[in-house]
Design a protein around this nucleic acid. Structure first.
Length: 666
RNA sequence: GCGCCUGUAGCUCAACGGAUAGAGCAACGGCCUUCUAAGCCGUUGGUUGCGGGUUCGAAUCCCGCCGGGCGCGCCA
């Protein structure tokens, strides 16, 4: 807000210079307004003269002085100085700074919002783990990052759609194995080879046994009711499939002597769907406890059911992007994606390769996606020799669907874990293949560029959990995994042993989210559980939350003393805020929209945690120096109360974007 | 072998290409008869892994080394 004011004044000054004959000034890029490190450099600085000296054809200091002269009439500045090699240093009048308290209060909950020049519809896909286990602490980082990113993009003026992709394709061997493992556990029989084990698998088995011990009427009615309502086509397909399965299961159940008998006779397909449904339910519940919600839980299988995948493949075959010629192109790519070496690998025709495909069942030739035409380093298989489709085939249909929905996305953001960076190339190629226009000299290259503009794959790096100074294992030997919900509950129990389980979960959620978000998503981070559970100076979450609780306490005390924080404070009273600690606090509060805009641009959501800590520090410092409630100074008291209200707002909204609660008492 | 990420204070990390590289913790010293001391104030701490280059200016961009993490299936 204040920064925008300074920028506007500079732009006005440049316009003036342009009119006065310095033509180049009209085409300077929008000037940057940065913080100053030393107080003697004023409140803000700009390097506009340094950057544009060449274009203006004069030394930076001379240009800076010209701009400073043109700025002389701006009413908000106490001084505009030229310093160093050509910086412009701005010193604002205290009352100009203080007046932004009123602006912040006027914005209210919309404080972080910044007007975006080109608001977009952005589809953000994140978490998207397989439905064969709970959300782990590893995926927790993606969940925290993705959800905070969505909040930030929204605050920056975009329309955001939060999406979870369920890998429930019927061809998935993993899911079949998962279903068979559950069957064994439910029946008390030995697990299949390499079967899933662990408490959560047993929990699914127990739930299914329990479910099948009585009629499924309730679940079936529930699905019918949902289907009677207005729902998206993809969701309708998913629910219809689930209903058909439940009806088959119910028939089998009614004919069986007991739950065990029923489970023994269920087809793998039907059992798999029951397992998935339960697992997804648990994921959804765990994520909700983590403060993460999705607009869409998209089922991969629903694409197959509707024939979308086959349609998509046919389209690519017709366009000549996919074919069954028996070769694979393999490229060696340079740093900037240029092709260093191209190799055509003829496909072996024999069945001597041990690739897991059923021997002697090669009923059709391999279908290739010629993804090397779109920057990928090798062509990818769409349909295997045994006729089964690969997940890339589903990915094609899925991305096409994302673009084609009624809510059409301008941009797709996909957040993936550290073991997925190999996907960037092929996903980009997939999108390029879809976006390719049928004609044009350079259709492939243009499609690739378009894909790079419209699909952004964000990889977050690995997170290591440290306890008692040692890395904590993410997977225990007995097959149990470190679930996100376990972390939340462990943190909550340790920090708030006397509280209710719900409250404990919220405490754990706040701690976990803040810690995940403190580090840039592309650095490897250590999550120090001991530090997170320390209730002391070392814990930044409490530091920030305490600042908020403290403000609220002051506001309550003021009410008791008969003072109300004015929502529309008088400029003359705000002008009483002239103490450096007061002004520093105002500047930081007013900076939230700028911070949000930056985070939305480069996805550096972690900077918001730094911002929150800095804002809290400035409030604590202000609180310590400037007594708020002073009955003998009613005007100053009102001004400071307005500042307190604005500080509470800034803290609450910054924490809100991070998905962390702002308690009014601690 | 190739690719992605990364290397900043004792530790964990910040720093739109900007001025003297900053916080927190740890260590040391102060501050509660007044609004929440889960707080504040101060001191100490650096060859930004190494070497080149680009420019008015580099922790940041480019090249080359060195170290760490992860990934490179007709698995998902």
């Amino acid at each position: 807000m204040i920064r925008d004011l300074v920028r506007t004044r500079i732009e006005e000054a440049l316009q003036r210079l342009a009119r006065e004959g310095l033509a180049a000034a009209a085409s300077f890029p929008s000037p940057e307004v940065s913080d100053t490190r030393q107080p003697e450099h004023g409140d803000y600085a700009s390097n506009v003269a340094l950057l544009n000296a060449k274009a203006a054809g004069m030394p930076p200091r001379i240009l800076a002085e010209r701009i400073a002269e043109a700025l002389a009439e701006a009413p908000e500045f106490e001084a505009v100085e030229v310093a160093g090699p050509g910086f412009l240093n701005f010193r604002l009048k205290p009352e100009s700074v203080a007046s932004f308290v009123a602006e912040a209060l006027r914005r209210g909950d919309g404080l972080p919002r910044s007007r975006h020049e080109e608001p977009q519809r952005i589809n953000v896909e994140f978490v998207s783990v397989n439905p064969n286990g709970p959300i782990t602490v590893g995926s927790g980082r993606g969940a925290a990052f993705g959800s905070a990113l969505c909040n930030v993009l929204e605050a920056a003026g975009h329309t955001v759609h939060r999406e979870y992709y369920i890998n429930d394709g019927v061809n998935s061997e993993q899911m079949r194995l998962f279903a068979e493992s559950v069957r064994s556990l439910a029946l008390g029989e030995p697990l299949p080879d390499k079967g899933y084990k662990g408490d959560y698998v047993q929990a699914v088995a127990d739930r299914i046994s329990e479910m099948l011990s009585r009629p499924l009427a309730e679940a079936i009615d529930g699905l019918r009711t949902a289907l009677a309502g207005e729902i998206d086509p993809w969701e309708r397909r998913t629910l219809e499939r689930r209903l058909a399965t439940l009806l088959r299961v119910e028939e089998r159940r009614a004919a069986s002597a007991d739950a065990a008998g029923c489970i023994r006779e269920l087809s793998t397909e039907d059992l798999k769907l029951l397992c998935e449904t339960l697992m997804i339910e648990r994921q959804r519940s765990d994520l909700a406890d983590f403060g993460v919600r999705f607009d869409t839980w998209f089922s991969e299988q629903s694409l197959h059911d509707a024939g979308e995948v086959e349609r998509c493949l046919q389209r690519l075959i017709d366009a000549g992007i996919a074919d069954t010629e028996p070769y694979q192109t393999v490229l060696k790519l340079g740093k900037n994606g240029e092709v260093l070496e191209s190799q055509r690998v003829e496909q072996a025709t024999g069945d001597d390769e041990d690739d897991g495909a059923p021997q002697g069942e090669a009923v059709q030739p391999t279908l290739w996606l010629r993804s090397t035409r779109f920057g990928d380093d090798k062509d990818r298989v769409l349909r295997r020799r045994d006729g089964r489709l690969t997940y890339i085939a589903s990915d094609l249909a899925y991305h096409l669907d994302k673009f084609n929905r009624p809510s059409q996305a301008d941009r797709l953001v996909t957040v993936l874990g550290p073991d997925h960076h190999g996907y960037i190339g092929r996903l980009t190629a997939v999108v390029a293949a879809l976006l390719r226009k049928p004609d044009g000299e350079d259709a492939d290259r243009e499609a690739l560029e378009e894909a790079r503009r419209r699909l952004q794959v964000v990889i977050f790096q690995i997170v290591r959990f440290v306890k008692e100074g040692k890395p904590a294992p993410m997977r225990k030997r007995d097959g149990n995994i470190y679930a996100l919900i376990d972390l939340i509950e462990e943190l909550g129990r340790t920090m708030a042993p006397e509280e209710s389980p719900e409250r404990q979960k919220e405490v754990g959620k706040d701690l976990a989210r803040f810690f995940y978000l403190m580090r840039s998503h592309d650095t490897h981070m250590d999550f120090d559980i001991d530090l997170a559970t320390r209730r002391s100076d070392e814990n930044p979450v409490f530091y920030v939350q305490y600042a908020h609780a403290r403000v609220c306490s002051v506001l309550r005390k003021a009410e008791e003393a008969g003072f109300h924080a004015p929502l529309q404070p008088e400029p003359s009273e705000l002008a009483l805020l002239a103490h450096p600690k007061e002004l520093a606090l105002v500047k930081k509060i007013a900076d939230l929209p700028h911070e949000v805009r930056r985070c939305a641009e480069d996805f550096g959501v972690h900077r918001l945690t730094t911002y929150a800590v800095e804002l809290a520090r400035l409030y604590h410092a202000f609180y310590d120096t400037c007594r708020v409630i002073q009955p003998e100074e009613p005007a100053l008291t009102r001004a400071r109360l307005s500042l307190c209200a604005a500080a509470a707002l800034g803290l609450r909204r910054a924490l809100g974007l991070l998905g962390v609660s702002a308690p009014e008492r601690m």
